[in-house]
């Protein structure tokens, strides 16, 4: 019996057809994520990390190998997985409240219960008082908080974050990392997988950092982060780990790795 919120990726292979040529995008991907773990996937642009995430979300469907959530093969999107996109993708014509409640619309909870759930999640991300506001009126960081609340509202087993803080400025980003950690602690049973470009972000938040290399995308190394939380960015161990990860890229890539944003 597998635990709720466990992800098992076994011998995953994915190819794209471009103009009749088959190009491998992902090859030989093996990854186990335990319930409640925070895992970051990091790698150069074009290493297929986004494709990997989209496969787990279920937005891409044809693949070889196995992607198992609680032992069941993933086939298409489902409410057991919450998604936070880089561009928050809040619906501009709905208020924050209704955006957050989007995933509850199909459920027959009754209005009062749904409202309570939405309220609880707005509180979780620190957006009380912004219920009636439209996304266009929110700052980037606030919009991303709302997007996180929207993804958590269905109590997913897995929260998938595709560079959630990538579009934010450096300060907001650090602040949001603190918030994200807080949310992760409070929603202890939710497994989180995050794509990122930012090595420091990965080390700060993750239990495990998955380093990918490109063409075709493979897992180069999985580095466990066993530093005590809350983590001190300036500590020796933190810096060392960061160096270690950066080193991986420089050794691997022939040309200089660039942070594409």
């Amino acid at each position: 019996m597998t635990q709720r919120g466990t992800l098992d990726i076994v011998n995953l292979k994915k190819t794209f057809n471009v103009n009749g040529n088959t190009t491998p995008v992902l090859e030989n991907i093996n990854l186990k994520v335990k319930q409640g773990e925070f895992v970051s996937i990091i790698g150069p642009s074009g290493c297929g990390k986004t494709t990997l995430l989209r496969l787990v979300i279920g937005l891409e469907n044809s693949y070889e190998g196995q992607i198992l959530l609680d032992g069941k093969r993933i086939n298409g999107p489902g409410l057991d997985r919450g998604v936070v996109f880089q561009d928050h993708r809040l619906l501009p014509w709905l208020t924050v409240e209704r955006n957050v409640g989007l995933g509850l619309e199909g459920k027959r909870n009754g209005k009062v219960v749904n409202k309570e759930i939405v309220q609880a999640h707005l509180k979780l991300v620190g957006l009380q008082g912004f219920e009636k506001v439209y996304p266009a009126q929110l700052s980037g960081g606030m919009a991303q908080r709302a997007a996180i609340a929207r993804a958590l509202v269905n109590q997913p087993e897995l929260l998938l974050l595709d560079e959630p803080l990538g579009a934010l400025d450096a300060l907001t980003r650090m602040y949001m990392q603190l918030e994200l950690e807080k949310i992760w602690k409070r929603e202890a049973q939710v497994t989180m997988i995050m794509i990122t470009h930012d090595v420091e972000e990965a080390v700060y938040l993750s239990d495990k950092v998955v380093i990918m290399s490109s063409r075709p995308g493979t897992i180069k190394k999985i580095i466990p982060v066993e530093l005590p939380r809350p983590r001190d960015r300036a500590s020796y161990d933190f810096m060392k780990l960061k160096e270690e990860i950066l080193e991986e890229f420089q050794l691997h890539a022939e040309n200089v790795f660039s942070y594409a944003i």
Binding site: L59, P77, G78, V83, R89, L91, L102, G103, G106
Partner: peptide
């Protein structure tokens, strides 16, 4: 946005 709709089934 279509993808959002798919994610929420």
């Amino acid at each position: 946005y279509l993808e959002v709709a798919r994610v929420f089934e």
